[in-house]
Design a protein around this nucleic acid. Structure first.
Lengths: 329, 329
DNA sequence: TTTTTATAAGAAAACGTTTTCCAGAAAACG
DNA sequence: CGTTTTCTGGAAAACGTTTTCTTATAAAAA
């Protein structure tokens, strides 16, 4: 392996000089830079990140943390969108990001988790859907041993940023549009996770609209699960005018239940996943650009790691009406 | 940061002794081991992988390589299954795996790619769906600079293993079962990528059956794309008795086309993805356990990196009939 | 001209491990 | 009882960088 030492010899300069060129130090003449770059090209030198990390005590390594339970539902395309967005941005910025799935995050212990990240040399985290129950992970984030960006969870501090859409507003808006011009009064609202931040926010949006329009809303927790939503729909839909769901996956569950019950009720979704197109229905929903969100999260993490301090980032959402053709063409 | 040096001091032994304990060297007495372990526990010592990698010249880092173009279709759940399988196995084995997406693999240059992996300290690769056109990546694999495991591509050597189902047999079997007891003679076969190994193998299976049953098979390349399959079905299905597809995604495309054309033709798929359930149809297909395949691939890579030599691994497939309920319950 | 300041480049220690080599003690052997 | 072998543990070099400190030179100020 050709090292910085070989480059130095070839260029006729000191090792430290080569290092300075590599790291864009100011005090090095253009002439020397030239020589060094020539030598690097001639020898095909590739800097050794390992040695660099050891010496500088900075690895620049980061992790994308996902809740493995979310993937029990193989059709959930959101995690993949997060992964694609994060990894591509990381590659673009020459960052080093590994993807980690945790199961039972809620029950994990702090020592273990810290040890895992530390031994991997991880310095920054992008955490997806941290829930209220994940106290250990929350502690880790607050321990100030790592820089973190939370997708869809609050927690801004010196070392932590937060990135999300305005869930309250989005739920309010999509439900309003969905109900526009109709006279639906009795609503079944299928909420997400009990301890999820986004679920709470969306529920607030729903309640706000209910107050405004004088709706009668029955709230049930569907855990973002298609199956749960299906059961709850079976149980409650008959006496309702319409069903509003905190996720598209639950909306699909609701629709399937309605087909099985052989009754019609309009359904409103949330997320704008393309799977929806395969159910062959039309539906109001909120489109989130998950790839973009993850990509922004990585960029924000880079900023934090360069010394910036945490901030709350709200990304825009869109109201759409998903159609069969969205996917096909 | 507490180092091996601190542990040595605390335990009253030499640094090298601690290292030996850490790496399970034989020549160290139980008594000493005990002392060292005690010191490690007391100090909460975490070995520094960076330093270890530098010193031993072994990073143990690996990469999962995916073709980004495949993910243009957000509903394709297969890449995610690969990722989950690979990452979880890596965590279990305490391996270090990063996920990398490449676009335009076919046009990449060798220097660049080698440099990328080398600077990241990557020593092993799991490569998904290497196609015949990806000559650079193929060269990289054969360069013997890395150990590799190829999912769904041939190429066994000292440094390379291959893992896949028996595609020829699977296509033969599923088509046979699909046609069993029917009198379909004129078949439209939608093949995958022109330069894809699996596509070729599946086509061989199809042709074998065609010879055996005296079928009249029209082969068209659908590129594993739903949209392409839809177009081809529109174009050719009317004069055929049945459609056999080299992937479920294409099968869905075909089904949608048939609905649009308002004609009925039975369709046979391949892959067994759960998305199929959302199309609300029944269909013969081949179920592959993609998570398991990726998980095995990582295990195999570990074996290669420990000095084992390459081998060809064939994993079993299942013939199934996907139903609506497969997904719902 | 002399002194001060600014600039460029080099020397060397440090980062936290691994690993080779060596020394000493204990065990085995004749 | 002397000699060889085996077993433990320690010393120190090495891995490829970064970074601090120092020195030499050139430019600026006195």
């Amino acid at each position: 392996m050709v090292s910085i030492r070989d480059v130095a010899k070839r260029a006729g300069v000191a090792i430290s000089t080569v290092s300075k060129v590599l790291n864009h130090y100011p005090n090095v003449s253009d002439e020397t830079k030239e020589k060094v770059h020539a030598a690097i090209a001639e020898l095909g030198f590739v800097p050794n990140t390992i040695a660099s990390a050891l010496s500088s005590k900075k690895t620049g390594r980061t992790a994308l943390v996902l809740d493995a339970n979310r993937h029990a539902q193989t059709v959930d395309e959101i995690p993949m969108q997060y992964i694609i967005g994060a990894i591509n941005k990381a590659k673009e910025k020459n960052m080093d990001i590994i993807t980690v799935f945790f199961t039972m995050i809620a029950e994990m212990n702090l020592e273990e988790m810290t040890r895992y990240f530390q031994s991997q040399g991880i310095e920054g985290l992008v955490i997806c859907d941290l829930s209220k129950e994940d106290i250990t992970l929350r502690k880790l984030v607050e321990s100030s041993k790592f820089k973190s960006v939370l997708i869809d969870a609050p927690g801004v501090s010196e070392n932590t940023s937060s990135i999300h859409i305005d869930n309250t507003k989005a739920q309010y808006e999509v439900a309003k549009k969905f109900l526009e011009g109709k006279n639906y009064k009795k609503i079944l609202y299928l909420s997400g996770k009990k301890s999820g931040y986004v679920s709470e926010e969306r529920l607030i949006g729903m309640n706000r609209l209910a107050d405004e329009l004088g709706l009668n809303v029955l709230v049930r927790t569907g855990n973002f699960s298609e199956l749960e939503a299906r059961k709850l729909t079976m149980q409650y839909a008959r006496s309702k005018d319409a069903i509003i769901c905190a996720s598209d996956l639950m909306a699909i569950g609701a629709m399937k239940a309605l087909i099985d019950m052989d009754i019609y009720r309009p359904v409103c979704g949330f997320d704008g996943v393309s799977l929806m197109g395969y159910a062959g229905k039309q539906m109001h929903t909120v489109r989130q650009d998950f790839q973009k969100i993850a990509s922004n999260a990585v960029e924000e993490l880079a900023r934090l790691m360069e010394g910036g301090s945490g901030q709350d980032i709200v990304v825009p959402h869109k109201l759409i009406r998903i159609k069969y053709l969205d996917v096909i063409s």
